[in-house]
Simulated assay, not measured.
Amino acid sequence: MAPRITPDERAKRMLRGPVLLRQTDTQQESTYDQRLLELTADHDWLHADPWRVLRIQSEFVTGFDALAGIPPAVTVFGSARIKEDHPYYELGCAVGRKLAEADYAVITGGGPGLMEAGNRGACEAGGLSIGLGIELPHEQGMNDYVDLGLNFRYFFARKTMFLKYSQAFVCLPGGMGTLDELFEVLCMVQTGKVTHFPIVLMGCEYWGGMVAWLKDRLVDEGMIDEKDLDLFLCTDSVDEAVAHIVKAHSEITKTLRERLLNHEDARRASRWVAR
């Protein structure tokens, strides 16, 4: 079991609207509540659909604003139900730690269990630890190892932030939520809606049955192509997982750079023809 290292008491956290931040010496002059309550308001419109649209919009704006400046990041998915004394928890800590040592920020769902483990590993290694929480009937709260945290009302807004700000995805063992997140990413990559970011399944024994089903059922019956199995790596090695991500990220960066150069060459050529 990983040694228990509690966050520094001086690293206090504060909520700024829906955003959770490590507290600094700079304090905000007023809160959202103070600015709201200075004006009288009619709240009959709160439950109307037009307001829901604005609320959804606000979640996107808040997420984009809070995450726009983060370094290259990897999202780590995993079960909220795993306790600290479980081997999967140590695996999650190791994943977060190795990713931080490779200069990636680590993004999780911000909750307990394996989400906490990923954040903890990154935090203890001195990396940026990010949590994107979600409001649920059984409120989980943000774990203590999050440096930058946001709470979302809507799953689709939260999923957009995972996809938009991650260069890779690691799936630790998990349940329905983890499977939903995994297949959302696989679908987006397979259909070309996002860049072919690396996807890693940690734990060959845990994921082996699902991988076999994908091959023996979906591939054999023509539901997916055999090459779709190459969209992810299944491994027990944290070092292999991180090396796979670093290599894939390097290749993606090289390809994007070449595209930009080719685009610039084409733009210059079109200018020359126009003359």
Rank of each mutant, 00 (worst) to 15 (best):
D239W: 04
K12Y: 01
E9A: 14
V74L: 04
R257H: 11
G141W: 01
R13Q: 15
T75E: 01
P198Q: 08
A2H: 11
R259Y: 10
I82W: 00
P50D: 04
W51D: 08
H263P: 08
G113M: 01
I134T: 01
Y104W: 05
N119P: 02
T26M: 14
H138M: 14
G127K: 02
R97I: 02
W51T: 11
V200A: 03
I5A: 14
A269C: 08
T195V: 10
C204F: 05
Q140F: 02
R10N: 13
K247Q: 14
R217I: 10
I82L: 06
A94R: 15
G110Q: 03
L233Q: 09
D103Y: 09
G208H: 00
I56R: 06
H249K: 14
Q34E: 14
S270E: 15
N151R: 10
L132D: 06
R81S: 00
T62A: 12
G208V: 04
T62S: 12
C123V: 01
F77I: 00
L128E: 09
W207L: 02
Y206I: 00
D239K: 03
I107V: 07
R259E: 11
R267C: 14
R97Y: 04
L186P: 07
S129V: 02
G133Q: 05
G133T: 08
V189T: 11
A243Y: 01
T6K: 08
T26Q: 15
V189Y: 03
E251D: 11
D230I: 05
R97E: 13
L260G: 06
I224R: 13
V242C: 06
V61K: 15
R22G: 14
A122E: 05
A80I: 02
L20I: 15
A105P: 00
I224A: 06
R52Y: 10
H263A: 14
T62F: 07
V19P: 09
T191I: 11
W51M: 15
V185G: 03
R97S: 09
L91Q: 13
R10A: 14
L99E: 00
V211A: 03
L261S: 11
A117G: 00
S30E: 08
H249F: 07
G222P: 06
V106Y: 01
E205T: 13
D236W: 00
G96D: 02
D49Y: 15
F162G: 03
L91F: 02
L39G: 05
R158I: 02
Q57A: 15
F169P: 07
D49F: 15
P3D: 15
D239E: 13
G121P: 00
L179F: 14
E240H: 08
L172V: 01
R16E: 12
R81Q: 04
T24S: 09
R120Q: 12
L128Y: 05
Q167S: 10
V53W: 12
